[in-house]
């Protein structure tokens, strides 16, 4: 079979510890240049090591256990953590925000992952963790960044377009119509990084997942095909998430009778 005639060099724990030496060099540069990032760097490096090793063991267990509910549980955890991360990055945090973000990301990544795994790849069993977990992880991670950008942008757009919005409302526009330009700008802001990365993928940088597949012995052509699908999945997932999110978020700035809420600006 294509791609399996490759001897993978296993990385020992000693190798991992030695690789921390790279971070020590960075810490040295930081000190030398007076950046004083050494503390954060060390913490970050250690967290990377612990978090990823933990995930590795968990995934190993899940792959071996092979149960649908465990796969769904892991994906739910990803969505919850991503939603909380998006919420934490916001200046205006509201109690409902993590739920809205979670809903938007579930919609975006759920639809996308379903279409690709069940209709396109037709994986068997439907929950095959080898496919579902990495694919969901990729789209949720990117939707998280898109959602953060979308919320930031819709908040700032509504604030800066206050007069335009009121002009629309005074002409008989609904709140949705009046906020239309803000919603479009926020969705655009969320989509641009994905579109940009589609423009340069393979030219400026090799994507992490594709690199990982090649390193683990997959034929570059298969890795590339997967990467293409992943890029398209990310685009759809970010589009759906940011659409759902911005269309829910703008409501907090309006009353049900189409008035701009001064106090929320």
């Amino acid at each position: 079979m294509e791609g399996l005639n490759f001897n993978i060099i296993d990385i020992s724990y000693l190798d991992l510890i030695i690789s921390l030496g790279l971070i020590i060099v960075v810490a040295g540069i930081s000190r030398w240049q007076g950046m004083y990032l050494e503390g954060d760097l060390i913490v970050g490096a250690v967290r990377t090591l612990i978090q990823l090793l933990a995930v590795g063991y968990i995934l190993k267990y899940i792959f071996a256990f092979d149960r649908w509910y465990l796969v769904i549980f892991i994906i739910l955890i990803m969505i919850i953590v991503a939603s909380l991360t998006v919420t934490q990055r916001q200046k205006k945090r509201t109690i409902e925000l993590p739920f809205i973000v979670g809903f938007a990301m579930t919609a975006g990544s759920g639809i996308t992952v379903f279409v690709v795994t069940q209709i396109l790849l037709q994986i068997k069993p439907w929950y095959d963790p080898h496919y579902l977990i990495p694919l969901a992880g990729m789209v949720i991670g990117n939707s998280m960044n898109g959602s953060t950008l979308a919320i930031d942008r819709i908040d700032s757009e509504i604030k800066s377009r206050k007069m335009e919005i009121e002009a629309y409302l005074a002409l008989g526009a609904t709140a949705r119509q009046a906020a239309g330009a803000s919603i479009r700008a926020a969705m655009k802001a969320a989509m641009i990084p994905t579109i940009n990365s589609m423009m340069v993928v393979g030219i400026v940088a090799l994507p992490g997942m594709m690199t990982g597949q090649i390193l683990s012995g997959t034929s570059p052509l298969i890795a590339v095909k997967y990467q293409i699908i992943i890029m398209y999945m990310i685009a759809l997932s970010v589009a759906i998430s940011s659409y759902v999110l911005t269309n829910i978020r703008f409501n907090r700035y309006f009353t049900s009778d189409h008035r701009l809420k001064e106090e929320s600006l």
């Binding site: 409302l169 005074a170 002409l171 008989g172 526009a173 609904t174 009778d257 189409h258 008035r259």
Partner: peptide
Amino acid sequence: VLELRRRVG
């Protein structure tokens, strides 16, 4: 309200 705002520009 939308009707009112059309009548009252």
